[in-house]
């Protein structure tokens, strides 16, 4: 087992290095002069020159890359051009907000998607199955920013009541009231992230459960007189969930990127809002830092998925 984990970690490292180099090249080769974006429209040539020198934007690209890789190797993500603070600190400040949204959205989306998948499989080729399929396809096709705006329009403007933006009411509440307030502010962004996640889990669970329902052990379980609910959830779903574990790691990247867009729409003060400003201002160290941290999170999630899968299904590590 330790050998298996070691080999997975060993394979993850070059992936990370590749992602960091790719991020660097993409951000630096993208059109747009960071000095202008930072200095504003009415900056003087003298001020622009000061910025270029200070942030070493006048150095050759390869020299900047080697310096950046050297820093990354020591855990230093650099210094933000626009905030004038270390990038790592800026990102860590925002991690709790983003994590709250990602975890809540992922849990809600996974549970709802899985339950809907089981329901559709159980009612295979009925009107309910067809309806759920169409709904899933619709949700899958909707861009997340459009979904977010729709949520604001329906639940915050037309129906009213639910807050459309931010994480807290003002003045901020204290103690338990704060938690209640946070929960209310989480409703729309979490639902947006969850709705974005549901179709994947729905489709996966539906097809797995349809297959599992044909298996011999299901016939046996029914034959010995178990209740249908027990057959479905205790025997059938447990086996059908294996592909969901595989997808969970992959989905983290998708949910994370979805959460970043959701944050910008709902003014959620997380990494997404940080990245939105960083991209507009061409704050290259901050953009690269966010990409790198995101990549590390996804690689770790995939690593954990591999390890979990190997525990659930030992054939994987011996294969």
């Amino acid at each position: 087992m330790i050998g298996y984990i070691g080999s997975r970690v060993f394979l993850a490292l070059p992936t990370l290095v590749f992602v960091v180099v790719l991020n660097f090249m993409l951000t630096h080769l993208a059109p747009g002069d960071p000095a202008y974006a930072l200095a504003g429209e009415n900056a003087t040539p003298e001020y622009l020159e000061t910025i270029r020198q200070e942030y070493q934007l006048d150095r050759p690209l390869m020299a900047q890359l080697s310096a950046y890789l050297g820093k990354i190797a020591t855990g230093d993500l650099g210094f933000s051009f626009s905030y004038r603070q270390p990038v790592l600190g800026l990102i860590l400040d925002k991690v709790p907000s983003t994590l709250t949204l990602v975890v809540a959205g992922l849990i809600l989306g996974t549970v709802l998607g899985t339950l809907a998948g089981v329901l559709a499989a159980k009612r295979y080729q009925t009107a309910l199955d067809a309806t759920l399929n169409v709904l899933a396809l619709l949700l899958f096709s909707l861009p997340i920013f459009w979904l977010g705006l729709l949520m604001i329009l329906v639940f915050a403007i037309w129906m009213g009541g639910l807050p459309a933006g931010g994480m807290t009411s003002l003045p901020p509440k204290q103690g338990l009231a704060y938690l209640g307030d946070l929960a209310i502010h989480m409703v729309l962004p979490t639902l947006t992230v969850a709705l974005h996640t549901i179709p994947t889990y729905f489709r996966l669970t539906r097809s797995s459960v349809i297959d599992a329902l044909q298996e011999d052990y299901v016939v046996t379980a029914r034959a010995i007189g178990l209740r249908e609910r027990t057959v479905l959830f205790r025997h059938c779903l447990r086996n059908a969930l294996l592909p969901n574990i595989t997808v969970a790691g992959m989905m983290l990247g998708s949910v994370f990127s979805g959460a970043l867009l959701t944050e910008a729409i709902f003014s959620w003060p997380g990494i997404g809002s940080l990245m939105y400003g960083a991209v507009i201002q061409r704050d290259l160290p901050l953009v690269m830092g966010i990409f790198t941290v995101s990549a590390i999170c996804v690689v770790i999630a995939i690593l954990l998925t591999d390890i979990t899968y190997s525990l659930v299904d030992p054939r994987v590590r011996h294969g």
Binding site: I152, A164, G165, G166, A264, I265, S267, P269, G277
Partner: peptide, 9 residues
């Protein structure tokens, strides 16, 4: 309060 997108505001 910060609103990057006008709809929420």
């Amino acid at each position: 309060k910060f609103y990057p997108e006008y709809s929420a505001a």
